[in-house]
Amino acid sequence: MTVSDEKIKHFITLFLADDLVSFFSLKLSKGWYHYLEELNFLLDLKRYLPEEVVYKMNLLVFSKLDFAIHLLNVSTKNEFSNIVYIKYRTFYDLLSHFATIELDRKIIVLLGLIVQNYKKKTNVIFFSSVIKSMAFYVAFNENIGKILIENRAILMKSREEADGQEMHPGMSLLIVFIFVLILFLTGKCH
Rank of each mutant, 00 (worst) to 15 (best):
Y33L: 11
A153V: 07
R89Y: 06
M134I: 13
K120Q: 14
G170P: 00
H190F: 12
Y118V: 00
K9L: 03
I107P: 04
H70P: 00
F179A: 14
I86D: 05
S75C: 06
L103F: 01
M167K: 13
I83C: 02
L94E: 03
L36Q: 06
M1Q: 05
I8W: 02
K30M: 09
K46G: 08
C189R: 15
A135S: 15
K106E: 00
L14P: 00
L39C: 01
I108M: 14
K46W: 01
F11Y: 15
K120L: 10
K132Q: 08
Y55Q: 15
A139F: 11
Y35V: 00
V54Q: 05
L65R: 10
R89E: 11
E37V: 02
A17L: 01
I86L: 04
L181C: 12
W32Y: 10
L60M: 06
F15K: 14
I125D: 15
S81V: 06
F179V: 06
A135C: 08
S25I: 04
F136R: 04
F23M: 09
G164R: 09
T13G: 05
F23Q: 10
S133H: 03
Y118F: 10
M1G: 14
G31R: 03
S22Y: 06
L20A: 02
V21Q: 01
V3A: 01
S96I: 01
I125A: 15
M134A: 10
A139M: 07
R89N: 07
P50N: 06
V124E: 15
L42A: 02
A99Y: 04
K30G: 03
F184M: 15
K27V: 00
R152D: 08
V109N: 04
F23I: 03
I108A: 13
K188P: 00
K87M: 11
L49P: 04
S29T: 07
F11N: 09
I108Y: 04
V138Q: 13
I175Y: 10
I101S: 13
Y118E: 03
K9A: 07
E160Q: 06
L174W: 07
L183G: 11
S128L: 01
I69C: 02
M171I: 14
K157Q: 14
E52F: 02
V3E: 03
E161V: 07
S129E: 15
